[in-house]
Simulated scan of single mutants.
Amino acid sequence: MTDLRLTQPPAGTRSLRRGRPRYGELAVKGLLLLAALVSVATTVGIVISLLPPTINFFKRVGFGEFFGGTKWTALFSNPSYGILPLLTATLLITAIALLVAIPVGIGSAIYLSEYARPRVRAVLKPTLEVLAGIPTVVYGFFGLFFLTPLLREHWPLPGEAPEFQNALVAGLVMGVMVIPTIASLAEDAMSAVPHALRDGAYALGSGRRTVALRVVVPAALSGIVAACVLGVSRAIGETMIVAIISGTQSTKVSLNPLEPMQTMTGFIAQAGSGDVATSSFEYKTIFAVGAVLFVLTFVMNMISMRLVRKYREVYE
């Protein structure tokens, strides 16, 4: 017969068995699940809202004309629905923005992570992140009334209007807007690299620059890539800056950044401002362009996920 004293926990100790259900933890778990479902439902809702008008649009306009056409006059009396002008303008302005944001952002992250003293970092990083909180319309007017006249003064541009619009200033201002996103996320990735790697490199006689560029940056490469792709996604989806600075007309394909251009988001903002009847076919072009923009950002995020998984470093 088993002695019951051997199966009971000693007095004054807690049992490892499951006690009463913890309703607080269950409630938190339910709220977190609800938040995840809301995110998924939002994405599904976006797809559902885009699909019917987009399908109706392509019943009238063929894929060849839409993706191969070099003229976009969707709101004109003689409409043409070639999206290449909008797509080219979007990619050109995004490329200019990345030429500014990636070097400055990653350089700022390296300085904050490897060179800055704690007091300096405590001041510079919040100050840098303040740029992310500035409304984009403020960036737009800053570029239009400050950078554009400055550019006209030192680089003669076509056009007589003082509010001359061009893709170059739009890309520069957008790059300044994206800097905090890339710098903050890249700095977080670099700060997560174990200090043992740095100490080992210093013990081998490496300098601070060598440690930063050959040890820390490769170890944090997955986070840096994710930060850059997030910056690209934000630049592609920006509306107010391009609507104010780059222009509202882009009827032909052009790679000259000194010319006014209209991006995909700029066209959506123009066509959805209320001048186009919601029951007209022209209004459905908004959904077709929005669907292309959605697919473009989705593909970029998928590429980002593959790159992050490929270059991810796991430390114990």
Rank of each mutant, 00 (worst) to 15 (best):
R234K: 08
R152E: 02
R17S: 10
N256L: 03
L124M: 15
L150R: 05
T42C: 01
I96D: 07
V216T: 14
K29S: 12
P218G: 12
D199V: 01
T13Y: 01
Y139A: 03
N166S: 14
L34K: 10
V137W: 13
P53G: 11
Q270A: 09
T136D: 03
M305R: 10
T297V: 14
K29E: 07
C228I: 14
A41Q: 06
Y23H: 08
G223R: 08
A132G: 15
L31V: 05
L213F: 12
A109M: 12
A243K: 06
A132P: 14
R18C: 00
V100P: 06
V216C: 07
V120Y: 11
V169H: 13
L87T: 11
G207E: 09
T210N: 15
R22N: 13
T54P: 08
F66K: 09
T73R: 03
L98C: 05
G247P: 01
S250I: 02
L50A: 03
V242K: 05
L293G: 03
A161L: 04
V225G: 13
L91G: 04
A192Q: 02
Y283E: 10
M1S: 08
G247H: 03
A189Y: 06
G64S: 08
S15K: 05
M177I: 05
Y202P: 00
E238C: 13
N166R: 08
